[in-house]
Simulated assay, not measured.
Amino acid sequence: MAGLEQYQAKRDFRKTAEPAGKVPRHRPGEAGGIYVIQKHAATRLHYDFRLEHDGVLWSWAVTRGPSLDPHEKRLAVHVEDHPIDYASFEGTIPKGEYGGGSVIVWDDGRWIPEGDPAQGMKKGHISFELEGYKLHGRWHLVRLKPRRGEKRDNWLLIKSD
């Protein structure tokens, strides 16, 4: 599914206050934009790492949150794109709904990709700089080779030296 179809298919917007994201903001030719990290106390506590690209937020669930130690690699499971207006979402997703639990904005700011981020996404290695309240400097998202039978799209979030 392209764009926000997968995101919208997983949610009942009559029950959740999450934004439906019907109007994506397109800025063709511009790379980078906003980023946000949301602390999400769902079934398991994790941090949702989101990068604005081509009118949506590319999204990864980072199990223990980002680490400032370049030697510590954090598992980041690539999930469906989210609407841009999700970046400011805070609140409680009702129990029983997809992602049920509380969500707060943990950090936000601007991300600046090195090279073409769409090419990096295809290749499985996105290098970028973060200018946020908590996170700064150069980072990498690196796709892991899938193990046999694995359905998740696993990446690593790594802080640069």
Rank of each mutant, 00 (worst) to 15 (best):
L4W: 03
L4D: 01
E5K: 09
Q6S: 13
R14T: 13
R14S: 12
K15F: 09
K15W: 06
T16F: 09
T16C: 10
A17F: 10
E18L: 01
P19Y: 04
A20M: 10
A20N: 06
K22C: 05
K22N: 15
V23P: 07
R25W: 03
R25D: 01
G29E: 13
G32I: 02
I34M: 14
I34V: 08
I37V: 13
I37A: 05
Q38C: 04
K39R: 13
K39W: 05
H40T: 04
H40M: 06
A41R: 09
L45N: 05
H46F: 01
Y47H: 11
F49T: 02
D54M: 07
D54R: 00
D54G: 03
V56T: 04
W60A: 07
W60C: 07
A61Y: 04
R64S: 12
P66N: 03
L68Q: 13
L68W: 09
L68I: 10
P70L: 14
E72P: 01
E72A: 14
K73V: 11
K73R: 12
L75H: 09
V77D: 05
H78E: 15
Y86C: 08
F89W: 05
E90W: 10
K95W: 02
E97L: 08
Y98N: 02
Y98P: 03
G100H: 01
V105E: 02
D108V: 03
I112R: 11
I112F: 07
I112E: 09
P113D: 08
D116W: 06
A118T: 04
A118H: 01
Q119E: 14
H125C: 03
H125G: 03
E129H: 14
G132K: 07
Y133R: 11
L135S: 07
R138I: 04
W139V: 07
H140G: 12
L141E: 09
R143G: 01
L144I: 02
K145W: 11
P146K: 15
P146D: 12
E150W: 08
K151G: 06
N154G: 02
L156D: 04
I158Y: 00
K159H: 07
S160D: 15
